[in-house]
Design a binder for these strands. Structure first.
Length: 209
DNA sequence: TGCCAGGCCCTCTTTAGGGCCTT
């Protein structure tokens, strides 16, 4: 099976996902999860602002008095700077010198990476991430490419996991999404090293959102 | 009152528009 530990002819892969307060350009991350090989990181962060109703409906997360709740149960939260530093430590742990890991996320180019970079930039940590990784791969673009002419009509992560792996999972929980994405890419999409190279973008490139 | 996300992809395209995808 294709692996994500840097032993398959491509850099180590770190699958990640964010849950946020919404989709707007000023949204804040409230859950940060990363998975590589059998290792995982899962942290909740209490935002300064409010959750959009759509985000609450999708995730079950709510904010009250700057505390975060999942289905009305209080969550243990990590201060945002500590959460980002933990994420950077996780990435360093995944390094196989001289190879630097690739971040992999679904629609990451348009959404997760810009949100993450903004959070890092506010704390002077953006350069640390750019130095730590070899770039990022958007599994949405990768799947659209590899499944071209396959008859797949929905490229939502949940739909791809069901179609390619025959699995249902708890979507909109960042850790479950990151784990499902790891299975989707390694067991379902099975990209070649050149496929990953073709879809790797630099974090230094201007990103939208 | 007026704002309300934005990049990518596809096509009945390129002097554009609409749907997808992320929360």
């Amino acid at each position: 099976m294709l692996s994500d530990d840097g032993e398959s002819g491509h850099p180590p892969l770190v699958f990640f996902d964010l849950e946020t307060t919404g989709l707007s350009r000023d949204c804040e991350m409230v859950q940060l999860a990363a998975v590589s090989s059998s290792h995982s990181l899962n942290l909740y962060v209490a935002p300064q602002g409010r959750m959009d109703w759509g985000a609450t409906r999708a995730t079950g997360l709510t904010v009250r008095h700057h505390r975060l709740f999942l289905h009305k149960r209080p969550l243990l939260c990590t201060p945002p700077t500590e959460a980002l530093l933990a994420f950077l430590c996780f990435i360093h742990m995944c390094q196989k010198p001289p190879q630097r890991p690739l971040l992999v996320g679904h629609n990451a180019r348009a959404f997760d990476v810009p949100v993450l970079l903004r959070a890092l930039e506010r704390r002077g940590l953006r350069g640390a991430l750019e130095d730590a990784v070899g770039g990022a791969v958007d599994s949405l673009a990768l799947s659209r490419d590899l499944l071209r002419d396959s008859g797949v009509s929905s490229f939502k992560q949940e739909a791809l996991v069901r179609r390619l792996l025959g699995e249902d999972y708890a979507a909109h929980d960042a850790l479950q999404d990151a784990r499902a994405l790891q299975r989707l890419v390694l067991q379902g999409l099975k990209p070649r090293a050149e496929d990953l190279r073709r879809h790797t973008f630099s974090l230094g490139e201007p990103t939208g959102h």
